[in-house]
Every structure is written in C-alpha cells, then in structure tokens.
C-alpha cells in the first residue's frame, strides 16, 4: 500500500515552500506530487518542477467537491502509469491542496474510492499555519478550522517574521484546537520527513496532560494573540479521554455512528488508540466529520501503557454531555472516562 500524505493550509501559508524543503531530502526521491491548482496561473507548478513527470495538475477549481473525481482519476492515472513503467516507481504521494480546500472530501476520496482504497493508505495530514496571519485566515476562511482539526502535523511557518509572543500564542491555540496533532516550527527546526509524514500521533502517546478547558487562559507571552484567535475559534473545543479497562468496540461503534449521523458536521475530528475487548493489540480509530477510516490494528502497543486514549475536536457541542453520552452508551461507570 503506497502512503498518501495530504498537505493543506491557508492561502500563502507556505505549503509549497515546505513541499520544496521536503523534496530536497534524498528519502523523498521516489515521491510523486499532486498539485491542486486554483486560478489560472499554475505558480505552484512552476515552483515544484523538479518532480516533473510525476506532477499531475488537476484541471479546475477547488479540490473539495467539484473535482473530487479529478483527484480519483489523477491517483488512478499515477497508479496505472507506474504499473506500465511510464513513470519512475514512486513509493509515496503527496497531495498539495488549495488553501480553500475542505480536507474532508479529499480524505473521503482516498478512503472510499474502490480502486484507490486498495492501493493507497492515508499517511499523515499536514497543515501549514502562517503565524503572522493565523488570525486573519481563521476568521476569513471557513475551511481553516477544518484544516487544523484534520491535521496530524501542524507546521508553523513565518515565525521568524512574527512579533514577540505571537508564535507562542498561535502554538497555544493550535494545541487547544487539536491536541492530537504534533506542532513543528518550520522556521526554527530542520525538516524531518519521517516525523512529518509518518508516525504515531503525539497525543495518543502517554505523556503530559493535553486537555485544555475552553476558557482557560493562555500563557502570558501569547495572551493577546491567543485572545484574538480565540474570538474566531471559541465554538471549537477539544477533549482527550482516557479509559483504563478494555472497551466494547461494538458499543463504541454504535455510539460513534449515531453521533456522526446527527452531529457529523460538528465533529471535526475523532482520533484514538483503543484497548478493545478480545484483542491484545491496540486499534487506531480516525475520523474527520462523517468520514471514518477503517479501524487499524497495530502490531503492538507503542509503550507499556495499555489504555484507550481518544481525542474529540468538536464545534458547538457540549463536551461534558459528549463524555456523559459515551459513558451511558458504552455502560461505563459515571466519570470512568478520565480527562487526559
């Protein structure tokens, strides 16, 4: 199964720059790149010419819905050309979306299209966030929050141009919005392709508490930035839950499917490592809005801690009620689901 990474982020937030840095790594020599064009001038294409034959420009508009078929066709085309030996045998695909792309339909295409789902597996979703303009983007771009919530890796860009405290403020708010994503500062740290493209989501590993109640204050340094960002993101909240004993997968599936049926638009992300009854090894669950990845078995637990950890990112949902509902449906004791 060839891994597919989705690179998304606001307009001008540095997606292509990051892509260029990634592609310089020898490890990325066999990577095919799909670029989703928006507008008439293929600037992004000009900037990533080094991948020439493997670049497929999608024909028109935004990837999110109107040309989802193009994405499927492009992926099938790459697969077919690889099989016929017409292009170098790539071992990874990176899809760079437009800044306006809703990541949901892209993930839906990858996980549900009959040919694609049997040849490709979804790797990390990487979202770039321009530190200087984060507030502007989150306030004007409805898809911005979805892009942040869908991310497995959040990449801060332009932090070298930020004012004092601005980076910390953005970092603080992103950690609140999506505790399941690992944050990486592109301006301060060298590119680590392994870290960005693969690996276990950080919040699912045992570690310090990552849950922040919605109205908790930010650190002093980033307080102004966080306050500004928060005014645009206040309806979005995240919650990390821990369960000590194995859970009934069937009961959990029934609860989650019912939740997504009624509130799928506002369940921006569900991500978890589950300890389920009848299995010695953990199961990963990963959902973005209505779209749920087939549960994935890991060969072993990443650490000695064999507990379920689930992260929910929701919009306009009372998370206390969400937790109580999960406990009632799965017959957990009251407050048995601990906040991480």
């Amino acid at each position: 199964m060839t891994p597919v990474n989705v690179l998304t982020g606001f307009l001008g937030s540095g997606k292509t720059t990051l892509l260029q840095r990634l592609l310089r790594s020898p490890r990325m020599a066999r990577t095919a790149v799909l670029i989703n064009e928006f507008g008439e001038i293929g600037l992004d294409h000009l900037l990533v010419q080094r991948v020439d034959e493997s670049v497929v420009l999608l024909q028109s508009g935004c990837i999110c819905c109107s040309i989802r078929d193009d994405l499927a066709s492009a992926l099938r085309g790459l697969l077919s050309r690889r099989e016929r030996g017409e292009i170098p045998a790539f071992d990874r695909i990176i899809i760079e979306t437009t800044g306006l792309a809703d990541p949901g339909p892209i993930l839906y295409t990858l996980l549900s299209e009959p040919v694609i789902r049997h040849h490709f597996r979804l790797g990390n979703v990487i979202t770039t966030v321009d530190v200087v303009n984060a507030e502007l983007h989150l306030s004007r771009n409805r898809e911005g929050i979805k892009q942040v919530a869908a991310a497995d890796r959040l990449v801060l860009t332009k932090s070298d141009l930020a004012e004092a405290g601005q980076t910390e403020g953005v970092r603080e708010e992103l950690a609140r919005l999506n505790p399941s994503a690992k944050i990486w500062d592109a301006a301060q740290e060298p590119v680590n392709a392994d870290f960005l493209l693969d690996g276990m989501p950080s919040a699912l590993m045992p570690g310090p508490a990552r849950y922040r109640p919605q109205n908790e204050g930010a650190r002093v340094g980033g307080a102004d930035t966080t306050k500004g960002l928060r005014s645009h993101t206040e309806s979005v909240a995240s919650m990390s839950l821990i369960l000590d004993r194995p859970m009934d997968w069937t009961a959990f599936g029934i609860w989650l499917s019912l939740l997504l049926n009624r509130h799928g638009d506002d369940v921006l992300r569900v991500k978890g490592i589950l300890c389920v009854e009848g299995s010695d090894t953990p199961v990963l669950i990963n959902g973005v809005q209505h779209i749920v990845h087939s549960p994935q078995h890991l060969e072993s637990w990443p650490t000695d801690e064999h507990r379920s950890r689930i992260v929910f990112i929701t919009r306009g949902i009372d998370q206390g009620q969400l937790r109580r509902s999960l406990e009632a449906f799965c017959r957990f004791r009251t407050a048995e689901l601990a906040l991480a």
Binding site: D248, T250, G253, V276, E277, G278, S279, V283
Partner: peptide, 10 residues
Amino acid sequence: ATVGESGSGG
C-alpha cells in the same frame, strides 16, 4: 470491522 481475535470480545 472485526477488531478482536475473532470479533470484538472474541
């Protein structure tokens, strides 16, 4: 999906 050894909860 089957998540246990032979189904959830065995």
